[in-house]
């Protein structure tokens, strides 16, 4: 996984994770009420630029990630484009009916999904689990038991991956992977899922018992190894986000690319 990150030293890694989380989640509310196709076009454009500037992913990964996300987002709007209601017909063949209204609505939906994915990726690629959960405990007062539970769970991912490989190797040694048909496939799936779930549950139980044995307390006040605080960078972050969102709205007002200012009308 090390080569996935370009550098964990970039600006966005140093933002207070709770602030980043809250601000980014609140953007959902902002764009949920946008019905102007132009705003969505410009917003996705500016967030794309922002993503390239701040993303923690290495270049090659980053490009394919964005590309796939764009394709997938437009796919997700295909139903609305092909089967939406509307009166100005562009294309009509049997069940498929593409109208100007449904096309505009579909594009808006696709771009909205794309923008949210980009915002989500800005968050996901610049946030490391450990500071994130520490910050949740310290700034947002998330109960320690849940945050530490998540931290412990994240530590188990590599173990689960290893376990998956072990099961596969064991199956290969016994010739299970060569059997074809529905029944052997079902058998394999069964063995993967049940074994991994049962082992994960047992591991979680053991971890919980070990934590309690070491006097992990669910209620009392505690101190933290990492103290997550605030800095000037948090202020920069707020300004950058506000600027990106405002630019989207301003450009939509002064440089409208399409006539669809409200896709719910017509």
């Amino acid at each position: 996984m090390d080569n996935v990150w370009a550098s964990t030293n970039k600006l966005f890694f140093k933002i207070n994770p709770s602030l980043k989380f809250l601000l980014i989640s609140s953007l959902f509310i902002v764009y949920l009420f946008v019905q102007n196709l132009n705003t969505m076009i410009w917003a996705s454009f500016f967030f794309l630029i922002l993503y390239y500037l701040v993303s923690g992913l290495a270049g090659k990964w980053s490009f394919w990630f964005v590309f796939l996300t764009l394709i997938v987002s437009l796919f997700s709007a295909s139903a609305m484009i092909m089967f939406g209601k509307g009166s100005h017909i562009i294309y009509h063949q049997s069940l498929i009916l593409i109208t100007q209204e449904s096309l505009a609505r579909g594009l808006l939906l696709g771009l909205r999904t794309f923008t949210f994915s980009l915002i989500g990726m800005i968050f996901a690629t610049t946030t490391l689990p450990v500071p994130f959960f520490y910050s949740l405990m310290q700034q947002l007062k998330v109960p320690v038991r849940y945050a530490y539970g998540c931290l412990a769970a994240f530590r188990m991912i590599p173990i689960m991956a290893e376990e998956f490989l072990h099961i596969r190797q064991a199956m290969r040694v016994r010739g299970m992977t060569r059997q074809k048909g529905i029944k052997p496939l079902y058998e394999r799936m069964n063995r993967y899922s049940l074994t991994m779930l049962a082992q994960s549950i047992r591991r979680a139980q053991r971890t919980a018992i070990a934590m309690e044995a070491k006097r992990f307390s669910m209620t009392e006040r505690r101190t933290y190894y990492y103290e997550i605080g605030w800095s000037r960078i948090d202020l920069y972050f707020i300004v950058i986000m506000l600027l990106t969102v405002t630019l989207g709205f301003v450009f939509a007002a002064y440089f409208p690319l399409t006539p669809f200012t409200n896709v719910l009308d017509h």
């Binding site: 769970a153 991994m196 779930l197 549950i201 591991r203 979680a204 919980a208 669910m218």
Partner: peptide
Amino acid sequence: LNLTDILVTIVIALVFGL
């Protein structure tokens, strides 16, 4: 909920998150 319940739930949630 005790610590075991929480941890088991979260580990399962993580598996499903994947």
